[in-house]
Structures are given as structure tokens and as C-alpha cells.
Amino acid sequence: MTAHTLSVQQLSAGYGDRLILQGLNLDVLPGRVTAIVGANACGKSTLLRAMSRLLAPRGGQVLLDGKAVHRMAPRKLAQVLGLLPQSPVAPEGITVADLVSRGRHPHHGILSRWNRADDEAVAAALEATRTTDLAERAVDELSGGQRQRVWIAMALAQETDLLLLDEPTTFLDIAHQVEVLDLLCDLNQRRGTTIVMVLHDLNLAARYADHLVAMAAGRLHVSGSPDEVLTAANVRAVFGLDSRIIPDPVSGRPMMLPIGRHRMAGA
């Protein structure tokens, strides 16, 4: 499999007159797992939108293998780059199998017929997200966590070499969060899929990502290995929160312990 390069150069983007991203640079490591962290409303979703062509850049560009994504044919791009949005909408009554099948959309033109490979991709995606048993259920009757796994299955069925996920672990209990992150790492290791995900849990981000990107107010504050990025100074700068960083005894990666105003030992 060819490793695709995705690079964001001097990107400015926003809504209406408001610029949210201002001159942001980011090189996604091919074949690696990148996690984006940052405070609410700092522009993480906006960045993923601009990277996947939904939002036209006001300045700068996003390059996939050297070509500007917003000038690529949408379907061609969607065969290589997948995105799980933060709040997708499930049409009323749609079944899980049908929704996951929508992931095959970019692999078909107006006339091409659905084939065996499509069904296999859908079955594999259901299997990987442990939603096989839900296949014939209506999506709007599922729990938030089940629904989230179904959306991830849809993104997996798309079988892209690059996968962007906006908060894939929201609504999931801790066991399912770990399961989803393990699943994404499997995908990364087995198929070499490049993963970029927005995560709110800094500790899980530090544990699972090869490359950690911290955003603040529409800019890239710092990026690098978890050891470089997850420091008390950076947490302070990005979230305005005091913290202590200790080595995670399970993984050896850095682990952040927040310091609030209450329940502090010796305080």
C-alpha cells in the first residue's frame, strides 16, 4: 500500500466573516496515528472539515499527495480520505446494515452495480466494530454508544487509506473507548491506514497516538511525540488548567493528572 501524504499549509478557514483557523500548518505522518487535542471551540472540527474538502480554505491549502484537496473530484478524494464527522444524522428508520453500506458510496458511479466486494467490506466493518448483531436493527433505536460504533463501521466500510475521525469515542463507555482505539490501532498496523482523530481524553490520546497535536484558538500550539507535547506547561497554555504529568505505569507514555481547587491531597 502506498503511504499518502496529507499536509496543511498556512491554512485559514472559517464561517461567514469569521476566520476560525489562522495560518495553520500541519504535516500528517503517513502510516501513523495522530491525535488532535484542544479546548472546545478551538477549531478542531473546522480543521478536519477543511482537510476533507467540506470547507474551502480562505487562505493556504490542504495538499493530498501534493494536490490541493478542494480541487480534487469529491468522489476520488473520498476513495482515499474518509471522515467520521462529529455529529452525523441517521435518516429515520434506516437499518444498521444499510447505513454502514453507505460507506461504499464513493466506490460507485451512477451506473456501477453493488457487488460482492462491497458486501464483504460491510461485513468486515460490522465485525470489527462488534455491531454484527445489530445489523438489522434501526439505527435510531440504538444506544448512543452502539450508534457511535455503527458510524465508525460506516467509515471503515469506506476502506480509505486515510481516516479522519472527529471524537470517535464520544458516548462510549471506557471499555468501548479502549476497544475503538485498539481497533483503530489494528487498522493502522494491519493495513497501514493513516489515522487522524480528535480526542478529548488527553491520557488516551497520549497512549494511542504516535503524534500529538495541540490546538489553541485556531492555531497549532505544539505538535510532536506525546512526551514532547503532554507537559504541564502545554496543558496550562492550551486548556488553562494546572496539572501534573507522571509516566503512565501501564504504557510508559506520559499521563496527565488535573489539579482543580478541591480534593487535593495535602491542600
Partner: peptide, 12 residues
Amino acid sequence: RLGDDAASALGT
């Protein structure tokens, strides 16, 4: 029907 973001991500 899946929302603009998802539709766009699926190549629409």
C-alpha cells in the same frame, strides 16, 4: 440525509 459533513466525506 446523513448531514452535509458525512455526505461530503462520502464523496458527494
